[in-house]
Amino acid sequence: MGMLLSAVAVLVVTHVLINRVGAELYVPVCVVATAALVLLARLGGVTWDELGMGRSSVRRGLRWGLVLVGVVIVVYGVALAAPFTREAFVDRRVAGLSAGELLYRVFVRVPFGTVLLEEVAFRGVLWAVIRRRWGTGWATAGTSVLFGLWHIVPSRGLTRSNAAVGAVLGTGGTGVALSVGAAVVGTALAGVLFCELRRRSGSLIPSVALHCALNSAGYALAWTAARAG
Rank of each mutant, 00 (worst) to 15 (best):
L210M: 04
S161F: 08
R42T: 13
W48R: 15
R200Y: 10
A228G: 05
L51D: 10
W134P: 01
V108D: 03
W223Q: 07
Y76P: 04
V120F: 14
I130E: 03
S57D: 11
A79Q: 08
F89R: 10
A228E: 14
V46T: 14
V78K: 03
Y219P: 01
A33G: 07
L102R: 04
V8M: 14
L149A: 13
V115G: 00
A95E: 14
G191L: 08
V180A: 05
G172V: 08
R92A: 15
A141N: 06
V16A: 15
G137K: 11
V106K: 04
V21A: 11
G100F: 01
G44H: 07
I18N: 06
R55V: 14
L189P: 09
G70Q: 06
V71T: 03
S201K: 09
G65D: 07
A164S: 12
A164T: 04
V16L: 15
R198L: 12
L103G: 08
V46R: 06
G124S: 07
S155W: 02
H15G: 15
T159P: 05
G44P: 10
T14A: 13
P111R: 05
L68H: 04
S6M: 10
R132W: 05
L210I: 04
T47I: 06
L62V: 15
V208Q: 01
R109L: 12
A220W: 05
V208H: 00
R131P: 02
V168T: 13
C30P: 00
I73Y: 11
Y76D: 08
